[in-house]
Computed example of a mutant assay.
Amino acid sequence: MASTLIQFRTEDTEKIKSIQILDKLGLTLPSYLKMCMSRLNQEQGIPFSMKLNNTDTPGIKALDKAGKIAEEYNISNMSLDEINAEISEARK
């Protein structure tokens, strides 16, 4: 199997911190990067969540508000069937 050289630039402090962590784990930076690429190929995508934990978006705020209203009216534990029945009744 042919091998190829991959190079990229990073801040010195990032590299040093990474090497220190990997050293404690008994790994080298090249072996860690090879593991990352291997998992990327196995998973056919990034092998970890890449979600932003931003709870300040309008959608999240609306869901939080809806949850508080549901708790206030004691309806936060309704099943989907109960919700659909309420909607059907309201549409009559």
Rank of each mutant, 00 (worst) to 15 (best):
E14W: 11
M50A: 10
K92V: 12
S76W: 10
S18Q: 03
N53M: 09
Y32I: 01
I87G: 01
L52E: 11
T28G: 02
T10W: 05
N77L: 07
D64Y: 01
L52S: 02
A62W: 12
A2R: 10
G59Q: 12
I6G: 02
F8G: 07
T4Y: 14
M37G: 14
L27D: 00
K34G: 02
K61S: 12
I16Q: 09
I83F: 10
L40Y: 15
Q7N: 15
I69K: 03
E43K: 03
L33S: 04
E11R: 04
D64V: 13
T10V: 15
E71D: 08
M50F: 00
E71N: 05
C36M: 12
L27P: 02
K61G: 02
I69N: 03
A62Y: 07
S79A: 01
I46W: 00
L63P: 04
Y73D: 10
S31F: 08
D23H: 10
P58F: 10
T13S: 10
M35T: 10
T57A: 00
K61H: 14
K17L: 10
A85E: 15
A62T: 14
G67H: 05
L25R: 06
I6L: 13
I75V: 14
I19G: 01
D12Q: 13
A70E: 02
A2K: 10
I16V: 12
T28P: 02
R9Y: 08
S49W: 01
M78I: 14
I19R: 07
K17P: 01
S31G: 05
D12K: 07
K65P: 03
T4N: 09
I19H: 00
